[in-house]
Design a binder for these strands. Structure first.
Ligand SMILES: [Mn+2]
Ligand SMILES: [Mn+2]
Ligand SMILES: [Mn+2]
Ligand SMILES: [Mn+2]
Lengths: 219, 219
DNA sequence: ATGCAAATTTAAGTAAGCTTAAACTCAAAA
DNA sequence: TTTTGAGTTTAAGCTTACTTAAATTTGCAT
């Protein structure tokens, strides 16, 4: 497995995970910042290796074997993120960039030692689940989508789904990160945007951003 | 800087460091496990970038800029080795293999945090000096070459120079590693091989192997 | 049913880092 | 001084992972 295939499988898994619809080549190209010709190329190669189900001109998806591998990369990524945060006190932004590279270069054995060192953690610093060695995903019980939150009640941010650097920076600017207290001020039904009070600040978020935030009820 | 150039510069530095003579292409090829044609190729490219002094058919050496870079890679390698040993309790063999890859993929910032975490250490788990951020090398004061050791006296292994996996395995088999107590039984002048007592075991080492061991006098 | 635009694939080409095999250089031995 | 062979370079070719540009397919709107 090369870095390019690692990243391809991971992107395919995460895109599929984020949305209802099937994954299109264009999305993959945008996410990986490569041309769609390169996506076709890779898809063909990975299909030959039995990792991706692919018929020309149709959307593509991971096979069982492909998903298994994707989850391994994601496990590595999230373990590295947590390790770097906990042990070396790096901030969320750095931690992600570091993990984006380190995920491809540590042995299985090293990852397992990191896992043990951290006490088999279930969630990374963004609140994202860390796939287990078995490939299973820990359940986030009691988590609430921000859409379901009731105005006036207190919540704690439990998970933020970040796939694009701009989203990361926006959330950072408004202080939206796991552990932050938050209240809903109002939900605008016509376009599903929401007005929040984050800490002491008021913030207005579009539907797309709202869907990236999950909460734990407070008291 | 790519992995290939990192490794090339590092190998050139270490080979030069190990021996009196200038470095020949063949040695580099053997050390890096690539063809000598590939060595020529790389030498030409690195000469263009001002990192290697190279004239066709002559031996090659690092420029100032090249040595600076080589020391940076070596710093990364040795910091990773110590970190993995101290924090995750990995053994010397694994630690080296991991570091061989990780040395190319951590940011300057991450390496500095590891350096701080370890308390700006001077030596790696083999007793090799860790280049400082400034590029200077810590001095190993009081270190003795094994050749200089006197029969009957007690010493502690302080540093072992390992560049080939076979040497590592041999030393591991005979229990030769930093911290190990050792006595010289006899030195055979005609070929400079030495008979040692390592722990409770007697070992006969050729000159080449003897030169890879450095000691601290005990009591 | 037809045509069009968007998405996708194919074609051709690039760069890095390798390989093997043939050609060359140079220093040391004869 | 010539020869020779170890070491080096050149030449040609491969693979991976990309690129751009042209050709193709598809589904959707008319
Ligand atoms: Mn991340
Ligand atoms: Mn990555
Ligand atoms: Mn090492
Ligand atoms: Mn390396």
């Amino acid at each position: 497995m090369s870095i390019a295939t690692d990243n391809f499988l991971k992107a395919l898994y995460l895109l599929r995970d984020e949305q209802v619809a099937a994954v299109m080549g264009t999305q993959l190209a945008a996410r990986l910042e490569i041309s769609s010709a390169a996506v076709t190329d890779m898809a063909r190669k990975l299909a030959e290796r039995g990792l991706v189900a692919y018929t020309p001109y149709r959307e593509m998806e991971l096979t069982g074997a492909g998903e298994e591998l994707a989850l391994k990369i994601i496990r590595r990524h999230r373990l590295w993120e947590l390790f770097l945060q906990q042990v070396l006190d790096m901030d969320l932004k750095m931690v992600h960039e570091e993990a984006e590279r380190l995920e491809h270069h540590a042995s299985e054995e090293l990852m397992n030692r990191i896992d043990v060192f951290l006490g088999h953690p279930d969630f990374d610093p963004h609140g994202e689940p860390i796939p287990r060695q078995s490939g299973s995903l820990p359940e986030a019980n009691g988590l609430l989508e921000l859409q379901q939150a009731e105005p006036g009640k207190n919540y704690l941010v439990a998970r933020i789904i970040i796939r694009e650097p701009e989203v990361f920076d926006l959330f950072a600017r408004y202080g939206i990160h796991p552990g932050q207290r938050l209240q809903v001020i109002q939900c605008y039904d016509f376009d599903k945007s929401m007005e929040l009070e984050v800490g002491r600040r008021k913030v207005l978020l579009s539907e797309g951003l709202v869907q990236k935030i999950f909460l734990n009820p407070l008291n």
